[in-house]
Simulated assay, not measured.
Amino acid sequence: MATFLAFIGVSIVVIVTPGPDTAITIRNTLLGGRTAGVFTAAGIAAGQTIWAIATSAGVVALLVASEPLFLAVKYAGAAYLVFLGLQALRAALRPAPAGAPGPGAARETRPARRLAPAAAFAQGVVSDLGNPKMAVFFASLLPQFVPGGVATFAALMALGAVFAAMTFCWLALYAAVIARAGDFLRRAAIRRAIEGITGTVLVALGLRLAAEQR
């Protein structure tokens, strides 16, 4: 029990630390509302579950040991984060359409385009699977907290599933809070500012991921 509680504690610290998952969840919630945010969280959790399965089956160990494969995943994931970030920056810098209401007119309460739940889910999955740091994290963390020190498939998978479930709950809560403040956050000026911030963060995270050593 003490080992499991230690795992929960370490997982909470990792999960609540802002990163690409948080930035993507915020962005997608603004684009598609709470539903898109929750589906993004579900996609991220699904990606983590895949990493957990791969870790339990020993596939992640092969990925970490293979420099070319590891780099391929890293650069693909970094490129995807930069792509999403540039999309957000483009939306932030896009000029208002002709005839758009001025500052004194009724505020904009809906995003210019809605993000479909399926697209949000896919973005969550791809973003998480494109982060090789998750592979290293799962490969190094899970075995340390296996009860009795026996790293069986079932034991590793159970810990991975718990981590993914905790991640989903945290990010879904994030989405609910952002959606709750949706009317304020979707004002034209506020939304564009947040798009600019999240876009910058995603680009920076992508570049950092590409430049980081193991």
Rank of each mutant, 00 (worst) to 15 (best):
G99V: 03
G77M: 12
Y80R: 04
L81C: 02
K133Y: 13
F121A: 14
A119W: 14
A120D: 09
A65M: 12
L142M: 12
Y80L: 02
A98S: 13
A92E: 06
A88G: 06
L89Q: 05
G104S: 14
L129R: 11
F121T: 09
P143V: 00
L81Q: 04
P111K: 09
L89V: 08
R107E: 14
A135G: 15
G130P: 04
A122D: 10
F137A: 12
F137G: 15
L81F: 09
A112F: 03
A118W: 15
L89H: 04
V126W: 07
L89I: 15
L115G: 04
E67Y: 14
A88S: 15
V60G: 01
A116L: 07
A88I: 01
A120N: 11
L86Y: 01
A105H: 13
L142Q: 01
A105I: 00
V136M: 15
P103I: 03
G104R: 15
L69Y: 12
P97S: 11
L71S: 14
G99P: 03
A116P: 06
L93G: 06
V126T: 12
V60I: 14
G99I: 01
V59T: 03
G130H: 11
A106Q: 05
N131C: 05
A105K: 13
G85T: 08
F83T: 06
V136P: 02
R94A: 14
Q144W: 00
F138T: 10
A112P: 10
F121E: 10
V126E: 09
R114V: 14
P103K: 00
A79Y: 01
R94D: 14
E67A: 15
R114T: 09
V60H: 10
L115H: 11
T109Q: 05
A139V: 09
Y75E: 05
S127N: 12
F83M: 05
P103E: 08
K133V: 10
P132C: 06
A122C: 09
S127M: 11
Q144G: 05
S66D: 13
E67C: 01
G130L: 07
L69R: 06
G58S: 04
V82N: 00
A105D: 07
G77R: 13
V64G: 11
P103Y: 01
R94H: 08
R110H: 13
P132R: 11
Q144F: 03
P132G: 02
L69S: 11
L93S: 13
G104K: 03
L71M: 11
V60M: 10
A65I: 11
V59H: 01
K74W: 09
T109I: 08
G99D: 03
F70D: 00
G99E: 07
F83C: 08
A79P: 01
R94N: 04
A61V: 07
T109Y: 02
V73H: 08
A122V: 15
A105V: 07
A92I: 05
V64T: 03
L141H: 08
R110Q: 13
F83W: 15
K133H: 10
A122N: 07
A120V: 14
A61S: 12
R110G: 01
R107C: 04
L86C: 10
G58L: 10
P132W: 12
V59D: 02
M134E: 02
A106F: 03
G102V: 05
R107D: 15
F137H: 12
L81P: 00
A105G: 11
A91M: 12
G104E: 08
Y80H: 03
L62C: 05
V136Y: 04
A119F: 09
A91R: 06
A135K: 13
G58V: 05
L84I: 08
A106Y: 05
M134P: 00
G99Q: 01
